[in-house]
Structure formats: structure tokens, C-alpha cells
Design a binder for these strands. Structure first.
Lengths: 257, 257
DNA sequence: CGCTCTTTTGAAGTTCTTCAATTTTAGTGG
DNA sequence: CCACTAAAATTGAAGAACTTCAAAAGAGCG
């Protein structure tokens, strides 16, 4: 957890949501959710902010941001999952991240978007004009601080991913992914291992997984099968994985010998 | 160039350096240099800032930031080059970036450093305590804005690197690297191709290059030789590369068919 | 000038990919 | 509810790209 984040949330220990997101009960003590913009602002500020926001609901598979287009908006995800990716002309694709509830989209941009964004499920999001956002920074410095915090966190994640893509084997990538996804889903960045038998829900297809980990779907499939055969995981169905032995996965993921 | 950067530099079109860096003549119209903190502040603010900074000079090969240590400081590079990297227990290393003059170090951190930093040449830098920096944000919002701008730019770069590491071939990686290094060195992020016969100076060893591009030194060497054989580059010596046909390199780098 | 370290080049080996076939899953209509 | 179809995932076998191991050439330094 970043120190900037801590400041922001201490000063505004609020739990109202940007839009009317469902329950926010888990928000306050969750490392990942407080990375949403929501926690950065007081009630009053949130009202102002949400007046500047445009709520939208998108169906599955909607490409709402395209690499190379002029960067007009920021987005904040309320529900559902978004995949962010870059692509080469011949179709090769690298998914750079996934944005779920509370996540902010649009930081990785100059005047143009440098990534594309596509919904993986029905998604609700709030849209802000970048210009309006800049104006708002004058009024509400806490917002800017929060954004810096989010950006720094993204930077940490992307550097982990560089290590994974540049130096890890297929098996290590899969193990790393499972653990990081567990953190994301469950105990939100506490840095602790998930408990044995923790159940993961993956909204990702094998293709997404492959494009995120820099592998082919066949290699992803084979690696998952290998972990299953070794008794480290169970795969009740395509969208669920049970982590039978998280410590063993961690040893593989971190190449601990 | 990011819009936030524009704001910051328009408001404070100053060219004093953080410490007494050599000539700053090229600073104002250079996309990369204005990413240094220097441009974000007025004269008065800079005086204040530099009073909070601790100047240091480090010899080649000094490891001054270690992954996992408590994150106490930010650094701003004045001269020389620093390599930032993550490593696995068995020694595999991934260089996540290089920091040269004007570059800011320490953004990719939570309470702990998530990367290590090591000097590649004699390096001069300014050190700021993270706590002091936070206090300064209250006084000088422009500073925080600038930092957000820097973080966003880093994010853009790291996503390009993810595409490279996850999806590009060895030859494509080398071609991409040469072009990006030319931009860094020469026309600073203008997005234009370097002119034919542009000469690159690489302070990197082949090992650094390999660890940056997720390859082995042998593959790096072979790929460079291949580009040379094809007449796209010339390699007068180990630390210099001449880009004979930048457009052809670009075609390889971007997999344009 | 000779030593060492880095880089280059070659040959063999490994991991991952590609191609192909089978199995499983999911969606649709009877 | 079940069968049928299409898409996705798994598994197998062959191939390619990169790595590893090994040796030679080149650069740097006392």
C-alpha cells in the first residue's frame, strides 16, 4: 500500500461510491478498492465529481477505447471487467492489464491512447472528460493525489509483469498469475498468500490468459494441466481454479529453490 | 507529450536546473527533459526544493536502491545513467528501465522499493525524502502535477515494453530498442523516426541489453549481426550503432508487413 | 605486450509454438 | 430437457526460435 494512498484515505475516511455501486462494505479495509478514486474524496467532493461524470453501461465485447485515438476521457469502472491491450498489425496482442470495479482507466495515455480497452462482461463505468478532470484538480487536490497513487500502483504492477514476460518460464507465469489473481480477488494486495483451497473465478478465456502472459493458448492449457497433475491446483470448470497448495505455487512463481 | 506536462510547463516556463546541471539550453523544447521535475517549478519554488535535496555523486556500479528495502527516498538524476531492475532468486534479471539526466526514480514503489537501482556510469543525483516530498506537495501543487505526468509517461513506456517482451521476436525487439533509444537520445519523444545515419551511443553492455529485452547476450549479438548483414545498421564499435535505414528498422519493430 | 573480460560465432539442446485432431463447453432450437 | 451445432479447450506430434554450451575473436587495461 502506498503512503500517498494512506494519506488520502486517512484524510477522507469516506465510503460513498462514485456512482451507486452495490455494497461498499469491504471497501475501507481493502487495499485494492481504496485504489478506486472513490475513497479520495469527501462526500461533498463526490457529489461534485459525480456531476461531472457520465454513467454508461456497455455490453460484453465492446471496444470503447482504441489505441491511437485522441485521448478524450478517463473512466472509472463500477462493475464488470475490462481488458486493456496493445496489438501489432499482424494481430499479435498483448494484454497489459485488467480493470475491475474501482479501477481507473486512461492513465497510460499521452495525447493519444496507447492501449485499447474492451469489455469482457457487461460493464458499468463513469466517464470523465480529461479536460474537466484537470480543472477539477484545482478544486480538489486530493483527487490528483489519489491519481498519482493509482499511477504509482500501476507502475508497480507493470514492472512485475515485465519480469514475468521477460524472464519467467511458462509454468512460472501461470503460477504467478494464479496467485496475483487470487490477491486481486480475495485479500486485495495484503501480500499474503491465499489460503489453501482458495477458489478463483476467472472471467478470462484461455486466449486472454495467453495474451496476458505472452504465451499461446496451448501452452497455457498444458501448464495448467501440469499444475493439476502435480496436485497443486484443481480445475472444476473452465472459469474456476482451486489453489490446493498456494505455497507450492509461490515457490514456482518466485523461482524459490 | 502529455497534456498535464503541457500545463505544468506553460505555467512555469522556467529553465533553472534542480542542481547546477550543465547547460539547460535544450531543456525547454525537449519532450524528454521536460519530464524532469525541473520544469515544473518557478525559480522561487526551485530554491525551496533544492534546499530539501541532498546532492550525491556515485561511482560506476553502485547499487543504491534495493528491491524489498523500505522506500525512503526519491531521486532525480542529474548526470549519468542508472539501470532499474528486478531479479529472481536464481539470478535471472529483468531491467525495467534506464534513468538518465532529468529522470525521476522512486515512483514504482509502495512502502518498499519494487525495483533495484544501480549506476552504469558515474552518476550525480539529488535525493529527496519521501516524507519531505509529501509535505512539499501541500506547498507546491505543480510538483505533484508534474509527478503525475512523469508517472503517466512511465506507464506508457512500460506498456510498450510489455508488448515487446510478451509478443515480439528477437529481431523485432532489437529494432524496437534501437529506435526507442534513438528517440531518447536524439529528438526526445517527438515520435518521428531518427534521420538515416543517426549515430547511437549505448552505455549498455550486451548483458544489459539482453536483460532489458528478455533475451540472452548471444541472441542479442546474433540479432545485431543480422541487422548489420542486412545493411540496416552499422556497428563501428561496441558502444555505437549507426542507423542506416531507420524506416526499415521501424518496419521490423512494428511488424508492418 | 600480454592478460582478462566481453563479444561474437557455431553447434547442440530445450522450450515454446504451430499444426492437427479430439474432447469439452456453451448456446440454440426442437 | 435433450439433441445438435459451433466455439473453446485440451492433447499430441512436428517444427521453429531461442537458449545453452563451447570455442574463437576482439576490446580494454595494467
Amino acid at each position: 500500500m502506498s503512503s500517498f494512498g494512506k494519506i488520502a484515505s486517512l484524510r477522507h475516511p469516506v465510503a460513498i461510491n462514485l456512482a451507486d455501486r452495490p455494497s461498499a462494505s469491504a471497501c475501507e479495509d481493502c487495499g485494492a478498492r481504496h485504489l478506486g478514486l472513490c475513497d479520495a474524496l469527501s462526500d461533498e467532493e463526490l457529489v461534485f465529481l459525480s456531476s461531472a461524470a457520465h454513467r454508461m453501461t456497455l455490453p460484453t465485447g465492446r471496444l470503447f477505447l482504441e489505441e491511437g485515438d485522441a485521448a478524450q476521457f478517463f473512466y472509472n469502472v463500477n462493475s464488470g471487467t475490462v481488458r486493456l491491450f496493445k496489438a501489432l498489425p499482424d494481430g499479435r496482442r498483448q494484454i497489459t492489464g485488467f480493470a475491475g470495479p474501482g479501477h481507473f482507466i486512461g492513465l497510460a495515455a499521452t495525447d493519444m491512447n496507447v492501449v485499447s480497452a474492451e469489455t469482457m462482461e457487461p460493464v458499468q463505468l463513469c466517464r470523465f472528460s480529461r479536460a474537466g478532470m484537470r480543472a477539477m484538480f484545482e478544486e480538489y487536490p486530493a483527487l490528483e493525489r489519489k491519481l498519482l497513487d493509482v499511477a504509482m500502483h500501476e507502475l508497480v504492477l507493470s514492472q512485475q509483469q515485465m519480469l514475468l514476460l521477460g524472464r519467467k518460464t511458462a509454468l512460472e507465469r501461470i503460477a504467478s498469475f494464479l496467485l496475483s489473481w487470487a490477491q486481486r480477488q480475495e485479500n486485495c494486495n495484503t501480500g499474503k498468500l491465499p489460503r489453501p483451497n482458495a477458489k478463483l473465478t476467472l472471467p478470462l478465456s484461455r486466449t486472454d490468459l495467453a495474451d496476458y502472459l505472452g504465451l499461446t493458448i496451448e501452452t497455457v492449457s498444458r501448464s495448467l494441466s501440469a499444475l493439476k497433475k502435480e496436485g497443486l491446483i484443481e480445475i472444476p470448470n473452465i472459469h474456476e481454479v482451486v489453489l490446493l497448495r498456494p505455497q507450492a505455487l509461490e515457490n514456482i512463481a518466485e523461482a524459490a529453490n
